Simulated assay, not measured.
Amino acid sequence: MQYDPIKKSLGNVFNVSPWSRILFYKLLDLLLLRSWHIRKEIRAWSKKVASDIKVLDAGSGFGQYVYYLSSKNKGWDITGLDVKKEQIADCNTFFARINRRDRVRFAYADLTKMDQEEMYDLVVSVDVMEHIEDDEGVFRNIYRAMNPGGMMLISTPSDQGGSDAHHHEAEHQDGVTGFIDEHVRDGYNLQEITQKLKKAGFKDVDARYSYGRPGSISWKLSMKYPISMLNVSKVFFILLPFYYLLTFPISIVLNIWDVSGHHKKGTGLIVKAFK
């Protein structure tokens, strides 16, 4: 299943003006459960820090979380790093158009080769680590780039089906592929990612499950089913507003439930690692 092309197509639809792009960011914040969890953690963390901190979005993509961070506090100096040069140029142009380039910048960087020291107080990494083979190298690089007392906030799939992906052998045998075919690993368990972060130097790691039962249902309604339809035919773009008119209220309730609860298991992980 091709996920990135659909995201890119939707982004192009909403990228006709700054205000439509902001609308797209707002819609993503409502629909994507991981955004609910990330924003909750940032709100809690922001109450404990100064207003003149430096923030890194490690794998900034379309700029959704940089927009939220730059809206959260005008004193934060924010850098977005990514490997896709067209997205970097696009984000720099957009943030210039909304007059935030004085405190927001995007640049190319391979996180496995990142070489910075004690620059950032907060590092956000949302659905990035599952795409990187040398995750331990990235954790070491980010630890080195953080200021003492800083926090790294990670959202990533768990090994309980978070990638909704089948192993390659199964794909070869029965011809079935997962919903997302761009991941280098199926996901982490709590012990694995905690051990890797502590090995990189982080002194305190708090990892918990997200996408419990209510979140998994919400994800299927808000993301998996509509994107599966769009992979079949772009004609379904026309039906999307009507689909979400029916499912959106249900997804909102499920998202609130997931963010508010404690899950013994789940298909996602939210991890806080402190230097």
Rank of each mutant, 00 (worst) to 15 (best):
P226A: 04
W45Q: 08
V13T: 12
H37A: 05
Y243T: 02
G61L: 03
D4A: 14
P241T: 07
L246P: 01
V16P: 00
I42D: 01
N99L: 09
N15R: 13
S251N: 06
G175M: 07
F242I: 14
V235R: 03
D206K: 11
H166W: 14
D77R: 09
Q160C: 10
L122F: 10
L246N: 03
T79M: 11
G261M: 05
I22H: 06
Y143S: 00
M223V: 15
V104M: 08
H183Y: 09
Y211G: 02
R43K: 14
D121C: 00
K199E: 11
V205S: 04
V253R: 11
D4V: 12
P148T: 12
L33G: 11
G162Y: 04
K85G: 00
K85M: 10
R144Q: 14
V66Q: 05
L221M: 13
A50L: 06
V176N: 13
D164L: 15
M119V: 15
Y211K: 11
K264V: 06
P226C: 05
Y243D: 06
E41K: 10
V124T: 14
L23R: 07
Y209T: 03
H262W: 05
N92G: 02
M129A: 12
Y3E: 14
E117A: 13
V13G: 00
R140D: 03
V176A: 13
G261Q: 09
K7L: 15
K272G: 11
I270M: 15
G178K: 04
N255F: 03
N92S: 05
F24L: 08
A44H: 05
N189E: 09
M146F: 07
S216H: 06
L30G: 05
K264S: 15
H166E: 10
H167Q: 09
